[in-house]
Simulated scan of single mutants.
Amino acid sequence: MIASGEHRAGGQFHRVAAMRGEPLSLSFDGQTIAAAAGQSVLSALLAHGRLLRRSEFGDDPRAGFCLMGACQDCWVWSQSGGRLRACTTPVAAGMILASRPVLPPHG
């Protein structure tokens, strides 16, 4: 079984046209993901064979469900700890995202 954030051989999304936006990169669970301006976080991750997270109620992999922002299946967490819907959030250069909530440091 593939852990959340791990790479799968071949992406779930396959690009059929050249990317038109400016090339960008983001970090997901510490790994660099290539993307393009205008692309959603979800499409960038799935094109690179990434799972988004594991279910809160078991160990089932999650990778988005509705793909239009109506469900909560594609939540990812930002470096600041905020939740984002990967399917409706456009990639931005230097984004740092995680498959699990980012906990603040003790102190």
Rank of each mutant, 00 (worst) to 15 (best):
S55P: 00
D59F: 07
A17D: 06
A18N: 00
S43C: 07
F57Y: 15
R53V: 09
L51I: 11
L26I: 15
T32S: 08
G21P: 01
R20D: 01
R20I: 01
D60P: 00
A17Q: 12
P23H: 02
A36M: 10
G49Q: 13
L26N: 08
F13A: 02
G30V: 02
M19G: 12
R54Q: 13
M19F: 05
R50I: 04
E22H: 10
H14D: 02
G30M: 02
A35V: 05
P23C: 04
S40D: 08
F28R: 07
S55T: 09
Q31L: 08
G21K: 01
V16N: 01
Q39K: 04
R20K: 06
R50E: 09
T32V: 12
L26M: 15
L42T: 10
D60I: 13
E22Y: 04
S27H: 02
A18C: 00
T32A: 11
D29H: 10
S27G: 06
D60Q: 12
P23L: 03
G38M: 11
H14S: 01
H48V: 02
D60H: 09
V41W: 07
R15V: 03
G58A: 14
M19N: 11
V16W: 01
R53F: 08
D59C: 07
S40E: 07
A36I: 11
G38W: 15
I33T: 07
V41T: 07
E22V: 11
F28G: 03
F13C: 02
V41K: 04
L26F: 06
V16I: 06
Q39N: 03
E56T: 12
S43M: 10
R53G: 11
D60K: 12
A47W: 05
A37K: 11
L52T: 13
V16P: 00
G38Y: 14
A35I: 05
A35Q: 05
E22F: 03
D29A: 03
S43V: 09
H48Y: 03
R54L: 15
R54P: 00
D60L: 15
H14R: 09
A17C: 04
D59A: 14
H14L: 04
G21Y: 00
L24W: 05
D59Y: 06
F13N: 04
